[in-house]
Design a protein around this nucleic acid. Structure first.
Lengths: 339, 339
DNA sequence: CATGACTGTGCAACCGGTTGCATTTCTTAT
DNA sequence: ATAAGAAATGCAACCGGTTGCACAGTCATG
């Protein structure tokens, strides 16, 4: 049984018959830039309006080779920053007539399954939105011939795919310089999962500057970028005794977890312990959190990611680039002030 | 230029030629329940493996009438609870082989545009995930012949579409009873936007019980379900003087905003002012928030929504039902204890 | 060994559009 | 008025699959 027909869908043919023109004519009226006379167009539009016709994007994709669907792949649905990320991506894509097919990668490691799936749906391109996935993940799509952009990914000298994100090493340096300027002596890095590329790079930049200045540096890692992991790790550190004076946390949600741990332990922030985060997500600015952090220019990165994926759709042969965006300190209340 | 070909896509035909069988045979090997001999199947699978073939889901949708895509429509990307909602929906849909096409409805009021869009993409069904949209929104899809489920929507006696959610009136009553049991005298309702159906119903239930017990009830509304709106409204109330003893807030994020306002004003919670939220989102349990709230069984509602949409795909003629889920109090630290 | 019931297979039409090409219609210039 | 060029239109093939139907092959049965 033809379900589409059962659903009472109106097709090109119906409109063509009512308007008394050929199917081509109808198709052309709905194709920007095609050659149709005003008279025909008027007839077709009227018929279409009467029937309530709207073209089947999927059918046309068969011949045009474009679905205007973009796979949006994410692997962290517990970090509130991703709600902002989804908001910006979906709005931005929609504004350009593109449709996000959302893929939740939680617990998934290899790209194979997602690649198969997204190819089966003929998405025009894929945006991998993750700071924890390795470069190889996005490369899997590229190898499969699918245009891909890795947002918030790791910067490399000769990227195989387009990568956009902050310079995590520079961000680490910035954090270090900020803490040094504040006169902190015993500093610590409380990273995200040690396997995440973003964690590794932030640590590299941070350690480089801290060590160059001869300060004490201790290091530990939370099991993932989440409140619970940040809190648990900080509680462990406090229980172990002699905590550092200040912690550069892997990201904001981790910072907030750490913050709650210090409060639970009866320590004051920033008087007893300082905390600096990274991302500057909406919640960092909430009055009851008020986290000093490093601003991650999401909106810019996402806008650029969309520009880029759109450009690749037209020409997938351009050499991939790694675009880095500048971070800046957002002064709030979790770090002691300049001496 | 045929882009699909340019992308080097392998089609049925290629596999058929290599395997030395007809296109039908190939199609059948990839269709569950079709009649193919083991010998043919083996040949086809081998050929497919060599070529790296995967069937084009969109092409097949043309004849089968099914895309296995589900439109997921949301209109609030600032309430962290929705990150949990997206997580559960995407995982649940994926587990059943369905693909979520995400629609961000922010600033959009009428369903027309979304209906057109989702019909153009021939989604099999639509899930409207919103507690603020009116019933008419989801009904628009139904009228267009698209199977639809409204999750977190308003309960009505004779629903036109399937609605799943908590009983907001009962939740309001539960909040009221809880406050009365705690011995509060001057209570207040700090709702979400007055136009949201969820706000209206929660207020109705709340007011009913409070008024029946002869207590003082004051009412105000935040401009939307967000931290900023909750904080702003509570600041306004505090500035106006003589606040109530306890506030039943429209939802958790609003509660957290209100909580931060009371703290900014130097008031202690729950000693000076009590706050009770609704939803029990992840963050409500964070140690530094620790919000007493009413648990909204999302996971159940979402699982049921997916079950239901799947059922409708097979039979869109079944009469719509409104399914209500029970709420319960989650005791934490923002309400004074029983006297 | 003939018969009938089944299982597999391929042909060809179809799903809802797009598009190259040939043909017709309309402009415009002479 | 006429020829040349441009614009509009329809035909038919095609995109990548699915499926009803007819036919061929297999097998157990009488």
């Amino acid at each position: 049984m033809p379900r589409a027909a059962a659903r009472g869908a109106i097709t090109l043919k119906d409109v063509a018959m009512l308007a008394g023109v050929s199917r081509s004519a109808v198709s052309r009226t709905f194709t920007a830039g095609a050659s149709v006379s005003d008279k025909t167009r008027a007839k077709v539009e009227q018929a279409a309006a009467i029937l309530g016709y709207s073209p089947n994007a999927l059918a046309s994709s068969l011949t045009t080779g474009r679905t205007k669907m973009i796979g949006l792949v994410a692997n962290n649905f517990h970090n509130p920053v991703f709600l902002q990320v989804f908001d910006l991506f979906t709005k931005g894509l929609q504004a350009r007539g593109l449709r996000p097919l959302l893929v939740n990668l939680t617990d998934e490691v290899s790209p194979e399954a997602s690649i198969r799936m997204l190819r089966a749906y003929s998405v025009d391109g894929v945006i991998v939105a993750s700071s924890t996935l390795p470069a190889s993940f996005a490369e899997g799509f590229k190898d499969a011939g699918v245009p891909v952009v890795h947002s918030f990914g790791r910067h490399t000298a000769n990227p195989q795919v387009n990568v956009l994100g902050i310079d995590n090493i520079a961000a680490g340096r910035l954090a270090a310089k900020t803490l040094i300027a504040r006169g902190y002596q015993r500093v610590a890095f409380l990273g995200g999962p040690a396997t995440a590329t973003s964690t590794q790079d932030r640590f590299a930049g941070f350690a480089e500057v801290i060590e160059a200045s001869g300060l004490d540096l201790s290091v530990s890692y939370a099991s993932n970028y989440s409140f619970d992991a940040g809190r648990a790790e900080m509680l462990r550190l406090l229980a172990a005794g002699s905590p550092a004076e200040v912690y550069f946390c892997g990201d904001d949600v981790l910072s907030i977890g750490a913050l709650s741990a210090t409060q639970s332990a009866g320590l004051r922030v920033p008087e007893d312990i300082g905390i600096i985060g990274l991302n500057d997500m909406e919640m960092a600015g909430w009055a009851n959190i008020n986290l000093t952090t490093i601003h991650n220019p999401f909106a810019q990165i996402i806008a650029a990611s969309i520009d880029l994926i759109e450009a690749i759709l037209d020409d997938n042969s351009r050499t991939p680039e790694a675009r880095l965006f500048d971070c800046s300190i957002v002064e709030r209340g979790t770090l002691r002030h300049l001496p």
